[in-house]
Design a protein around this nucleic acid. Sequence first.
DNA 1: GATGAATGAGAGTTCATTCAT
DNA 2: AATGAATGAACTCTCATTCAT
Lengths: 208, 208, 208, 208
Amino acid sequence: MVSMESVPRSKRRATSQKSLGRRSELLGIAAEMFADRGYTQTTVRDIGDAAGILSGSLYHHFDSKEAMLDEILRDFMGSLHAAFAEIVAEGEGPRQVLEGLIRSSFATIHERPHAVALYQNESSLLAHLPDFSYVAQTSNDIAQIWLDVLEAGRKEGTFRQDLEPGVAYRFIRDSVWGSVRWYSPDGKLGHEKVAEQYLAMLFGGLLA
Amino acid sequence: MVSMESVPRSKRRATSQKSLGRRSELLGIAAEMFADRGYTQTTVRDIGDAAGILSGSLYHHFDSKEAMLDEILRDFMGSLHAAFAEIVAEGEGPRQVLEGLIRSSFATIHERPHAVALYQNESSLLAHLPDFSYVAQTSNDIAQIWLDVLEAGRKEGTFRQDLEPGVAYRFIRDSVWGSVRWYSPDGKLGHEKVAEQYLAMLFGGLLA
Amino acid sequence: MVSMESVPRSKRRATSQKSLGRRSELLGIAAEMFADRGYTQTTVRDIGDAAGILSGSLYHHFDSKEAMLDEILRDFMGSLHAAFAEIVAEGEGPRQVLEGLIRSSFATIHERPHAVALYQNESSLLAHLPDFSYVAQTSNDIAQIWLDVLEAGRKEGTFRQDLEPGVAYRFIRDSVWGSVRWYSPDGKLGHEKVAEQYLAMLFGGLLA
Amino acid sequence: MVSMESVPRSKRRATSQKSLGRRSELLGIAAEMFADRGYTQTTVRDIGDAAGILSGSLYHHFDSKEAMLDEILRDFMGSLHAAFAEIVAEGEGPRQVLEGLIRSSFATIHERPHAVALYQNESSLLAHLPDFSYVAQTSNDIAQIWLDVLEAGRKEGTFRQDLEPGVAYRFIRDSVWGSVRWYSPDGKLGHEKVAEQYLAMLFGGLLA
DNA sequence: GATGAATGAGAGTTCATTCAT
DNA sequence: AATGAATGAACTCTCATTCAT
C-alpha cells in the first residue's frame, strides 16, 4: 500500500474511499460481463443496467469502455507477473518452482476467474492494438519465467531431455489456464485438488 | 470433403458446380476472417471486400452471416466426430485409441486451422444459442468418446487409477486444441512432431 | 462598468460584493471561450475547468449556460446602444456623428473584443430564439441610429446622393465590426490608427 | 471535364452519373443547412430528414459528417481561387483587376450563397484543424492575390499612398463577403447593382 | 451474380443539468 | 461554494440486411 499523502489534492482522481469502492465495484461488474459474453458483445448499456445506473453515467468514472478493459487487464497482468516473480525469487529448485507456478495459477483462477477468462478470451485480439501493447509485453515476460524454470530443470536433469521447453511450456500453459472455462469456484472440486491432479499427471504421466 | 447429404435441399441455393465452388471459396474466406479477428469483429463488409464483391452480394449465396458460421461449424464438427468415431471403430486398445485421437487432432489442426480456431474461440458463446444447439450436442458426443477410452484404460490398468478421467480429459483437450493458437502449418515443427512431443509428455510425464 | 439596474432582482442570486466579483470573473472566462471556439462548441465543463471548479458548480452562479450567454450579450448590447445614443445626443453634424460612431466602434472592439466577437458570430443564429429577441431588437435600434445619420448627411449634401444609405450602412457595419477577427488589442496597430485608416478610405475613397 | 476512361473500374467510387447526381444533391442540402444553422448545430439526422432518407444512409455516400463539410469547402475554395487567378491572368491594370475581383465576389455570393456563408461562419474555427489546413492555405493564397493588386495600384499611383494595403484588404474583404448575410439572391437588388454601389463607395468615397 | 441505395436497430459517447452532501 | 455521482436526451456512426435494377 502506497501512501498518497504527498500527492496534491488537485492531481488525485476520484480516489476517496467511497469512489474507490465505486470504481472497483463497476470494474468488477464489467469484468464479469466481459468474461461471460465477451468484450465486444458486452455493451456499456449492459454494464450500466447491471450497475443500476445509466450507461452515460459510466463516463463519469471511466473515459471509455476500452479504458475499463484496460484497467482490468493492467491490474490483473501486473499482479500475476508479480506473483510469479515472487515464487521464482524464493530460490528453490526447478521442480519446486514449477509446482509453485502451477499451484499459483490454479489459485488465481479460483480467486479471479473473470480476469483470467477475459485474458484468455481477448488477449490474442488485443495484442495487435497499440494501446494494449503491454499485454503482449507482460505475456512475454511471464512466458520467460516459465521457460527459464523449464530449461533450468532440463539442464540439471530434473526434467526430461527429449522435451522441448518451448513446446512443453505451451502445453502446460494451455491446459492450466484453459481450466478457467470449466473450473467452478463453488464446485466440490477445489482448486487445490485440481492442482494435485494436474501435477500428478504432468510429473508422472498418464500411464500406470 | 464432407458429404452434404444431410443438409436439407431447401436450404441450398444454386447447386450448380460453379456456385458450389464459389460457396466454398466464400466460406473459406469467411472462416479465415472469423478465426483471425473473431466472428463478431468480422463484418460482412470485411468478407465482401476480401472476396472482391459488395457485402450485399453475399446474400445471394447465404441467408445470413450466422448461416455462414453455421455451415462452417456444422461441417467441421461433423467431420471431426466422424473421424474420431472411425478411430474408435478400429477396435484397438485404449492406449492406441487415445494415441490415435491425439494424432488425429493435431492433424486436424494442421489441415483446418481456421475451423479449429473458430470452434475454440466461439463455441462457448455459441452454446447458449438455440440455433447452435448442435455445437454443444456434438461436443458432448466427442467428449464421451474421449471419456470412454480414458475410463476403459483406467479400468484395464493401462492408465493410472488416481487420475479422474473427467479432469484428465479436460487437461488433454485444452492442451491439444489450444495449440491451434501457436502452431504454424508452415513452420519447421510439423504436426507429427508436435504430436510426438505431446504424447511423450502425456504418457511418460515431465520428470526424467 | 455597466449598471445592472435593469436586471430584475429575482434573477440575481447572492449579491454580496464577493459573489458579484466571482460572477464577473466567470462571465469573463465564459465570454472569452464563447468568442474563441463558439458558444455551441464551448462546454460548461470547459468553462468550469478554466475557472478551476467543476462544471456543476457553475450552476450556483448561473441558471444555465444560456443564461451566461444572455447576461454577456445583454450587458454588451445595452452599453453599445447607450454609447451610440450618447454620440448622437451631442448634436453635431452628420459627418462628425458618423465619425464618432466609427471611432467608438473601433474603441469597443479594442476594449471588449470577446463580447464583440460573440455578437458577430452568434447573433444571426440567436435572432430566431424568443429568449434572445432583444438581440434583434437592439440591433435594429442601433441600425436606425446609423441609418438616420447617413440619411441626414445625404439630405444635407454632405454624403453622396447616389449611394443608398441602407446598402452603405451594411458595408460600413460589416467592415468595421469584421475587424474584430483580425484586430489585435496588443498589436502595434492601435485602434485609433485603424479608425484613421478606415475613415480615410471611407470618406475619401481608395483612388488617389 | 476529365475523361475517366483510364481509371480502373474498381478504383472508381460512386461516379456513375446517377450517384454523382445524388452526391451533389445531398451536398447541396447539407451546405444549405450548414450555412443556415451552423455546422455543429446541424445534425446528420437533420440532413437525412431533409433528403428523405435515414441518417445512417448518408454514410453510404460519405465517410462522415466532416467529410461532407470538407467536400463542400474544398470544392468552393478551389473554384474561388481559380476564378480569382483567371481574373489576374487577364493582365489588366490594378484598378480593373480589383474591380474584377469585387464583381466576381458579389457574383459568387449570388450563385453559391450557402458555400460562401459556410466559409464565412466556420473557417475561423476550422483553420486550426489539421484536416482543414487547406482552408487556411487557400485563404492565404487568395489574400495574396488581393494584396498584390492593391500594392501594385499603390505603387503605380492609382491607389492612395496613405492607405496600408493590408488594412485596406481586410476592410474590403469583410464588407464584400459580409454581404452574404444580408444579400438576397431573389431580391430586387441584384448582385450587379450591389457591386456598383460598393465600387462607387470604395473608389470615390462617401463624401459628396 | 452482382450492384448500390436504403433501412432500422443499436452501438459508444457527449453534455447540460440536478442534487444530496 | 463547491463536490461528485447521476440523469436523460441527443449525437455521430456502424452494420446486418433488403431489394430494385
